[in-house]
Design a protein around this nucleic acid. Structure first.
Lengths: 245, 245
DNA sequence: ACGAAGTAGAATCTCGATAAAAAAAGCTGA
DNA sequence: TCAGCTTTTTTTATCGAGATTCTACTTCGT
C-alpha cells in the first residue's frame, strides 16, 4: 500500500538500505514542512543534503511520488505538490468520508485491546507539549507523532489495512497543510479537549457522537488552515508571515 | 497519488522515460495475471524481460511496491504479494465502503457530461467481447480496460481525485484476483445486464438502487473468486487447473 | 522592438561495474 | 544423520561516468 509509518522493509531487524533511509528522512522533512521553501527537488540537491548517491535518492523520490507526497514529470524531475484552497477542501471532504466509515467500523468491532491502545494514545497525547518548550513558534515533532498515533488508534479496529493506509495517506497530506499554515494554538482552541471527547464517545460505543466530534475536529482544523491560506501564503518564506494587507 | 492509469509523467506529449515504460508494462502484466507463476521478482529477470538497465527497473519496482502491487524487503528484493481468502475478503469489504460513498457522491453531483461519459462507457463495454474470440479460455484485455473504464466513469463525478485514486487501487487488486481465478463466465451470469442495471439506476438518480446493484456486483464476483481460491489454487501453474478432488 | 530559431549550460536519466549482503552449497565433528 | 560453521554462488544495492533531454539565454530576421 502507499501508507507511511507502516513502511515495510526495515521493520523487523533487517538492515535498512540507503534508499529507505533517505526515503524516511525526506518524508519526515516533508511532513514537517521543512522543505516548503523549495518548489522543485533536484536530485543533486537531495543528494548533497542527505548524503547518498543518485540511485538511492531517485528510488526514494519515486516512492514518495507514488504516495502522492511529491509530483513527478518524466524528464523533468520531481517537485513539491502545490498547495491550494481547492485541494485542501477536497482533501478534507475525502478525509471525512473515509474516517467516518473507519471510525464506525472500528467502534462496531471494538475489542479490549483496541480500547486500551486508545486510552494509552490519548494519555500520551495529553502528556506531550504541542509547541517546543524553548521555541513556542514551532511545533513539537513529538506531539505530531503522538497526534497521528492517536488518530490511527481510533480507527485501528476497522478491519481493513487498506482503509487504514488510505487514512494515513490523507492524514499525511493534512499534516502538511497544518504545518505550512503554522497552525497556531488558535484563539482559545482546546485541542486536548476535542480529542478527549472523541475518545470518550468512541469508548462508550457512541458511534454517532464520536463521528460528529471527529468530523468537527477535522473541519475546524481545515477551516483554520484555509484562513491562513487565503490570508496569502508564500512558500518561499521560511517562517509564516501573516498580515499582508 | 498511487493510482494506475492516471499515471502522470508521460501523459501530455512529454517523452516517456525508460523507468515509466517498464513501470507501465510490468503493471499491465501484473494486472493481467501474467506473472503469477513467479513468486519473487529478481531485478535481473525483469531487466532481461523488459530490456532496460537495472536503475530504471528498480525505479519501476519501487513505484509498484509503493502502490501495493508488489512487496519489498530491504536487502531482499521485491516479491509478488501473496493472495489469500482473508485478503480477498478484506479487499472486497473496503471496496464496497469506498465505492458506495463514491457512487452516492457521484450521483448527488451528476452533470450532463458525467451522464454522457457513463452511457458511452456502457456502450463500449457492451460492444466488447469478454473472452478472446479465438481462445475462449483467456480474458480479453480490451474488455478488461473497458470494464475498468466503466467503473471509473460511474464514480467520476464524486469530486475527489483521492477517492477515485483509492478506488482505482482497490480495483487493480480485485482485478488481479479475478484474473488469477480465471473468473469463468460463471454458470449463466449476466455480466452486461448487471452493468446495465447499475448504470440505469445511476442515471435515474436512484442512489440506493444503484448502490445496491453495484455492491451486489462486487460481492458476487468476489464470491466466485473465493470459490476458486478455496478449491485450491497453485500459483506455479500457468493455466488454472480446477477440480483437484 | 518583438518573435523565432539556434546555442551553451544544467538537469535528468541510463548504463556498466563494484561493494555489500543474503542464500545456497559444502564441510566438519560428533 | 544432522546441527553448526565456513566457503562459494547468487542477488541486491550503490556509485560514478556518460548519453539524452530540457531550460534559459543569445542571436538573427522582420
Amino acid at each position: 500500500m502507499a501508507n507511511g509509518s507502516t513502511e515495510p522493509g526495515q521493520s523487523k531487524g533487517g538492515k535498512s538500505t540507503l534508499a529507505s533511509s533517505v526515503y524516511q528522512q525526506l518524508r519526515d522533512d516533508l511532513l514537517r514542512g521543512a522543505l516548503e521553501s523549495e518548489t522543485k527537488l533536484r536530485v543533486e540537491w537531495v543528494v548533497s543534503r542527505y548524503g547518498a548517491g543518485a540511485s538511492p535518492v531517485r528510488e526514494a523520490l519515486n516512492r514518495l511520488a507514488a504516495e502522492g507526497l511529491l509530483g513527478r514529470h518524466d524528464q523533468r524531475g520531481f517537485f513539491l505538490m502545490p498547495v491550494s484552497a481547492a485541494e485542501l477542501e477536497e482533501l478534507t471532504r475525502t478525509r471525512c468520508w473515509l474516517e467516518e466509515r473507519a471510525l464506525r467500523e472500528s467502534i462496531a468491532h471494538r475489542t479490549a485491546e483496541w480500547e486500551e491502545q486508545l486510552v494509552l494514545a490519548l494519555h500520551r497525547l495529553a502528556r506531550a507539549e504541542r509547541r517546543l518548550p524553548d521555541d513556542p513558534t514551532t511545533n513539537n515533532p513529538e506531539w505530531e507523532k503522538l497526534h497521528r498515533a492517536f488518530h490511527r488508534a481510533l480507527i485501528a479496529a476497522c478491519r481493513s489495512h487498506w482503509l487504514i493506509g488510505f487514512c494515513d495517506q490523507l492524514s499525511d497530506q493534512a499534516s502538511r497543510y497544518r504545518l505550512i499554515a503554522q497552525n497556531a494554538p488558535g484563539a482559545g482552541r482546546d485541542d486536548l479537549g476535542e480529542h478527549r471527547i472523541i475518545a470518550e464517545r468512541a469508548l462508550d460505543g457512541d458511534a454517532d457522537g464520536a463521528v460528529e466530534a471527529l468530523l468537527n475536529h477535522y473541519r475546524i482544523t481545515a477551516a483554520m488552515c484555509m484562513e491562513r491560506l487565503a490570508q496569502g501564503y508564500d512558500p518561499r518564506a521560511g517562517k509564516s508571515q501573516r498580515g499582508r494587507k
